[in-house]
Design a protein around this nucleic acid. Structure first.
Length: 603
RNA sequence: GCGCCCAUAGCUCAGUUGGAUAGAGCGUCGGUUUCCUAAACCGAAGGUCACAAGUUCGAAUCUUGUUGGGCGCGCCA
């Protein structure tokens, strides 16, 4: 619908240029066509006259008048254009333009709001929780945001691969293995003590039980070194199984689980180092170049680990915006975490993705410049790599901060949260906010409010549409269908609220495209909220006077078309967000208090 | 100390990439159901958009500075 206005204005501008009325040196500017806040300002407000003022050397209002006078409206959809304020064009459209929205929705079907295939291959990596424990609430935000971004990009016609990077290599995995082995011995009657850094939480005991069930006491005589590979294997396998179960509960599915251990075993890590050497991007040193002259000072964390810094092979990441060069091989020749990650991302490029998106927690923000610099040093375009940083969620319970720590065993699992409030409600809590703002999250409030969670407002909007369509059948006026509803019926949609609803619905494809472009799923959510609010308001206002279903059959069909189009719009938007669109609301279940109480147990 | 992110109603957050009189939910107060679902709607109260300059027709939005908060600054991952 907005396209109609954009086309008419563009055509008019080009025509005026042809006739020498405007110079249009910079081409047609990227003017805005927006629904104004106030109804008095027409259906769409256009700012093109203000934008052209400087380059044309004429006042905006004069340009606006020239545009109106020379308007070329090939599709015959513009009723009137008012000039207002500093030079806005307030466009009023003919009713026909509104009714075409219904045709659009009908034609698009299940693809309404989505775009055709772009051929672009995009990789979205998200969650990537360490397989040393279950998915906890600290991961929840990145998990839902990542999933919604993947859905958005899919809706925009891109070929999306969803990936989970499994850090099944390194010291933390070893620590997990040691803890599992201790618990295994404990189950066979030994008394054990966990040391600082090992995982005290109960889930490790469950892992050990699984191990006992399959291997019995076979490893009781083995040394730690002998048993460790098996302990790590079991630990990672069980944690990964638990992670996948939780993700399934959250309605999230990954296409690829990429293993760091496999990456290491494949030789890819050594290969990336060789590639850097061949490009002259490395050097051997005891300390990173430049760091002597005060890039680091005593306040830097690095100072506390100086004794572990023995030198080795450095990568010249500072040449591409990183604060300092980074080590990629220790003195003994072993690679560091970054080296593996560089190899991993090199592979992402080699796998043929046009765009690579990582959803990281804000605590990994410092990692981004190194990664991008590392890609640049391989001759790859770092702009193809986008990192969405999801800010920390501060967890509160009744206003008091809750510290979540895997090491202390005070983990609140995402699974518990989902079971308490439901997957859709949980998803909503995290998608309502932009990813790059830190938020607070009161668990007690979530427990209390689980019944009036915002998600139900959305779902009720859809269910209400469904209820009206059911009622029409009951009253023997079943809706004919969006594709066959008559022009005469649609012409009966003349109430201002009805036109507003149609106009709003028509914006869905643009909202989705913009949200995908910005990697901001919450935009779709707020669009739905506005649309539903307008609908409830319309419904209530006319519930006594202008009902959807009346004795006027022609009018009823028109209004049912409005309701059906809205239902289709919501259903499509919900699917893009990963939220269920129910046909009817079931009574809110009673929630028992304190569901988190035993989730945070220590050992 | 340095880098990144943030600051909007009592609370939690939006604000259509610079547009006209800054919004929603929750909370408070008051109203609306013989009716297509009240999980809804209507109204009231509530704001120096942290502060100060600057950029221009126009700033919550862009620039700089100040203040306050978060994250990071490791040869951990």
């Amino acid at each position: 619908m907005k396209d109609l206005v954009v086309n008419a204005i563009t055509t008019t501008l080009l025509d005026l240029k042809e006739r020498g009325v405007v110079r249009l040196d910079g081409g047609v500017p990227a003017f805005s066509v927006d629904p104004p806040k106030q109804a008095a300002h027409g259906d769409f407000a256009v700012n093109v006259a203000m934008m052209l003022s400087k380059s044309e050397g004429k006042p905006p209002r004069a340009l606006a008048e020239m545009l109106v006078a020379g308007l070329v409206d090939r599709e015959d959809v513009i009723e009137r254009i008012d000039i207002a304020g500093p030079g806005f064009l307030n466009v009023i459209l003919k009713d026909r333009a509104f009714h075409d929205v219904v045709r659009h929705v009908a034609r698009a079907g299940a693809g309404w709001g989505r775009s055709g295939p772009t051929g672009q291959k995009i990789l979205v990596e998200f969650v990537s929780a360490n397989p040393t424990g279950p998915v906890h609430v600290g991961h929840a935000r990145g998990t839902f945001v990542g999933d919604a971004i993947a859905r958005l990009l899919t809706a925009s016609g891109h070929d999306v691969t969803r990936e989970f990077y499994v850090n099944d290599f390194g010291k933390q995995t070893e620590t997990l293995g040691r803890t599992v082995f201790k618990r295994y011995r404990e189950l066979h009657g030994e008394s054990i003590t966990l040391v600082e850094g090992e995982y005290p939480a109960a889930y490790v005991i469950d892992i050990a039980k699984t191990w006992v069930a399959s291997d019995g006491d076979r490893w009781m005589k083995a040394s730690v070194e002998e048993a460790l590979p098996r302990a790590m294997e079991i630990g990672i396998r069980e944690n990964l199984r638990s992670i996948k179960e939780t993700l399934a509960l959250a309605n999230i599915e990954h296409d690829v689980f990429s293993s760091e251990a496999a990456l290491q075993a494949s030789g890819a890590v050594k290969a990336v180092v060789e590639a850097y050497r061949a490009r002259g991007a490395t050097y051997e040193a005891a300390i990173a170049r430049g760091t002597e002259d005060g890039v680091r000072n005593e306040a830097s964390k690095a100072a506390h680990y100086e004794d572990q810094q023995l030198g080795g092979t450095f990568l010249k990441t500072s040449e591409h915006g990183d604060a300092e060069d980074r080590i990629i091989l220790r003195k003994d020749g072993t690679p560091v975490y970054l080296t593996a990650d560089l190899a991993y991302h090199w592979q992402k490029y080699q796998r043929g993705f046009d765009r690579i998106i990582n959803v990281f927690g804000a605590d990994h923000g410092g990692h981004v410049p190194r990664l991008k610099a590392g890609m640049a040093l391989l001759g790859l375009d770092p702009k193809r790599l986008d990192v969405v940083l999801v800010q920390i969620v501060r967890l509160l319970r009744d206003g008091q901060e809750v510290k979540v720590s895997k090491r202390k065993g005070t983990v609140i699992e995402l699974r518990d949260l989902i079971e308490e409030v439901g997957a859709d409600a949980c998803r909503f809590l995290f998608l309502m906010k932009t990813a790059n703002a830190q938020i607070e999250f009161d668990l007690a409030a979530v427990e209390r409010q689980s019944k009036d969670n915002p998600v139900y407002y959305f779902q009720y909007g859809h269910a209400r549409c469904a209820a009206i369509l059911r009622k029409a059948i009951e009253k023997e006026q079943p809706f004919a269908g969006l594709d066959v509803v008559s022009a005469a019926s649609l012409a009966r949609l003349t109430l201002p609220e009805e036109k507003l609803l149609l106009k709003k619905m028509s914006m869905l494809p643009e909202v989705v495209a913009q949200a995908a472009n910005a990697l901001e799923p919450h935009r779709v959510l707020y669009f739905c909220q506005e649309l539903i609010a307008e609908f409830h308001s319309y419904y209530s206002k006319y519930s006594r006077t202008e009902r959807v279903i009346s004795d006027d059959l022609e009018l009823s069909q028109g209004r049912l078309a409005l309701v059906a189009a809205l239902k289709a719009t919501l259903k499509s938007a919900f699917a893009i967000l990963g939220v269920d669109a129910p046909e009817q609301m079931t009574a809110a279940a009673d929630t028992d208090d304190g569901a988190f109480d035993d989730a945070a147990e220590g050992v």
